[in-house]
Design a protein around this nucleic acid. Structure first.
Lengths: 233, 233
DNA sequence: TGTATCATTTTCGTATACAATTTTATTTAA
DNA sequence: TTAAATAAAATTGTATACGAAAATGATACA
């Protein structure tokens, strides 16, 4: 049976990737091949290929002979993730301002609107997902695919980081940052856009407690190091 | 037979990746699975996994039902590749200056020395490869893995771009740029380093003729668009 | 001679078989 | 009862089988 590989593959990949973005899959979650097989109705060949792709995205960790788990980025990883995001997202602002068309503005506003709706309706998954989408869309507007691709990965990794290190009691603050950035970019004001983006990213990183690492009410996170040690024993 | 997958996989991947870096594999070259199987003595399962990884690096193009070929980046791709490189490599200079240890300086100088030796002995493959290695090493010195990884891919893609668009008669000019950058970085002079890097990258991109695209004496490149059109027919 | 159609061979895509490793369960001894 | 040892089950890693698609070559016909 030669399936329409391209499509089916992409669909399954997106399903898992989305689950990570929406934090329905959290760090440490085990991804058994046979389970994924029955869920998606394909053979292990396909599932294995998708797990490999996700592992190259640093969203899944492939432990030889021990199966795949959702990745658990260390504090240092998270610092590098955000350092990279600052570099990329501030760096592309010039190009975003330069190339931004009216269609681009519409697309950006559409995302921000849906994001705000999600926030107001208490749809946390949707809000997280759309917030990430916004940042990736901005890279698309800047017309730079390599950077867009990396940002897509970094946004997903940020979602994992947030699940691990988010300061308690934060939860869905309504945020004017995104819409302000859209306005500045569509006005072609690169300096202002850069400044807004810089502060926005700082804010995001500040919401995490990278020193006192763990999320209190999730045993998997609390004992992540123990699990890691035992897993490698 | 459960092979020591990790190692064997990595080795084969590196072999192919290196061949691209050294331009022993040029854009359009066909990678038949069965041939790779016999060359490396593994089954198609392994080869297929490696081809997938290389395709995610944008070094190989996977054409459904038509096999894998070494990628042929379009002129617009190359512009984005170099735009991304400028952004990344200039952007990491601050961190490189900040984190650069004496071991790092030694490692950088070692690469530059080997590069110059390669140039002087007419070892074109080695020179291209080491030039790329230098840029990736600088990202390592900056202590940012995500960016280092992307740069590794972009350097390989640059090698393909060079094979396609290099201005004729260029060939291995001895270059003081790299050693100057090492000096500036190890002295902690970020401003100077940035300036040197910016001009170095501009020079590299200027060596290519992205408007009059093709490499004259390679039919595969000359008729790349025709091939592409027919392949998709 | 050149072109179109058909058969043959090659190559690719997925599922599956089987070996090796890890995990879990059970038994046994202290 | 706990802990170690062993057996059973589950899971992963690689090779291979087989169907589908594409490339190649042969034949018929204008």
């Amino acid at each position: 049976m030669n399936r329409q590989s391209e499509t089916s593959d992409e669909w399954i990949y997106d399903q898992v990737f989305s689950a990570v973005l929406e934090q329905r899959l959290i760090p440490g979650a085990k991804l058994k091949e046979s389970e994924l097989c029955s869920v998606f109705g394909v053979s292990r060949t396909i599932i294995r290929r998708i797990l490999l792709r996700l592992s190259l995205d640093k969203v899944v960790e492939l432990r030889p002979n021990k199966g795949a788990v959702i990745a658990t980025p260390a504090a240092e990883d998270v610092r590098q993730i955000f350092a990279a995001r600052r570099l990329l997202e501030i760096g592309i602002i010039d190009d975003a301002c330069e190339h931004c068309t009216s269609e681009d503005v519409a697309a950006l506003k559409e995302i921000v609107n849906r994001e705000n709706t999600a926030i107001q309706t208490g749809n946390r998954s949707g809000a997280i997902r759309l917030a990430g989408e916004f940042h990736v869309e901005l890279a698309r507007v800047a017309r730079n695919r390599p950077i867009q691709e990396l940002l897509r990965q970094l946004v997903a990794q940020s979602s994992l980081a947030l699940a691990l290190y988010e300061a308690p009691g934060h939860l869905l603050c309504v945020d004017e940052d995104h819409i302000n950035i859209v306005e500045a970019v569509s006005a072609g004001d690169a300096a202002k856009s850069r400044d807004l983006m810089a502060r926005h990213l700082e804010k995001a990183e500040a919401e995490m407690k990278l020193e006192a690492p763990v999320d209190s009410n999730d045993l998997k996170s609390v004992f992540a190091d123990v699990i890691e040690a035992r897993a490698n024993a």
